[in-house]
Design a protein around this nucleic acid. Structure first.
Lengths: 199, 199
DNA sequence: ATATAACGAAACGATCCGTTTCGTTCAAGT
DNA sequence: ACTTGAACGAAACGGATCGTTTCGTTATAT
């Protein structure tokens, strides 16, 4: 839930009091996911840990998916995208930083979001929208390289960005987040060389 | 469950009668997944539809994950890997065929397997092993291209194979299996060009 | 001070979990 | 052909979670 959505919902319900209950719930939900794992995540467990009532949770998050997405959004996003002037270096850093970021709690949360999206269409739609936004950010990396004349101007930057993200998802979902700099460099070299102006 | 594992389990239990009950359960489970979706998939629902007792199901599949993997394994695997003599064409066909294959039931099942693997470590391990095997098959495509001198001999063929599979997973998990030949070709061109011998 | 509405707590019927019990039904061994 | 044994279907078990409803309580806005 974004800030504006939050305010809008708060207004529409006419919530007068909502001080830190919201945050306590998110704190509890996040802690359960990270400490006890996805299998232990239930609305009842969250309510117990947050000392909140279930109706309060359901008032603000109608489905599991919305709560999970809120937890993920609340994670402090790491600085993922670099702008070093070299696409190959940018891509290397992107892969390294994303996997590193996912090692710390956020990955655990995101895994569950992806899993939930496979059985909740609303969650799937929200995830698709979120992923598309991130893809545009990553694509900007390639756009800059095009502007620099580093790669071919007819590059499908969104597709290139998706291939990077897809690799990261695949590592996350198969629990293989560890990556050394050499492997990240290999990925970057291979992807970037495929886009170079060929003449 | 593989055939040998099946026989082994059958022997170890001393099953005398087990004719088509097994298949009826798998049929029912598959039908529920495909017709009613992942949210409707429960052992009770499978037992009801198969007119089987829950203990029978639990006897053969101790966890949801093992049952789900059996269902996926039972799907007739499409002919995915081609050997046209051109790596770019092989890769194009691989992407096209895999996404096409996943459109028909198998994808729905595989999505649930991946989701289940996020909360069941045994299922995760089985999926990792299965995926690694498929990856080796796909890597053979690149090995052939190396043998033909089509791409650089120091190519990391397993990594290249994983990037293709990762893209397919990403499409599957975000419910975007539709792909036209042009897009598949773009993927193939980009990947293959990145591996070409550079001189 | 009073009205208002979110809140926590508890209980609801429902579903599913994984297991246990029990009578039945086949297929093997004698 | 008869007996034995084991898998089977059906039913019920206690437990957990679902999403909802009810009911005092509590804090805030007027």
């Amino acid at each position: 839930m974004t800030d504006s959505e939050y305010d809008e919902r708060r207004r529409s319900i006419g919530a007068r009091r909502n001080p830190e209950a919201q945050e306590a719930i998110l704190d509890a939900a996040e802690a359960i996911l990270i400490e006890d794992g996805a299998a232990a995540f239930s609305i009842e467990a969250v309510a117990r840990r947050a000392r909140a009532g279930k109706p309060t949770i359901y008032r603000w998050w109608p489905t599991r998916g919305t709560l999970l997405l809120d937890i993920y959004h609340r994670q402090k996003p790491a600085v993922i995208h670099a702008d070093t002037g070299s696409l190959e270096e940018d891509v290397t850093l992107f892969i390294e930083r994303l996997l590193e970021y996912w090692k710390g709690g956020a990955g655990q949360v995101f895994r569950v979001v992806v899993a939930e999206a496979q059985r909740d269409v609303a969650c799937a739609e929200a995830l698709r929208t979120y992923a598309a936004g991130r893809r545009r950010q990553t694509a900007a990396m390639f756009e800059r390289a095009i502007a620099r004349g580093e790669i071919s101007p007819d590059t499908d930057s969104l597709l290139a960005a998706e291939m990077l993200a897809a690799l990261a998802w695949h590592r996350l979902l198969t629990d293989r987040l560890a990556i050394d700099r050499n492997e990240a460099k290999t990925v970057a070299r291979q992807v970037v060389r495929g886009l170079k102006v060929s003449d």
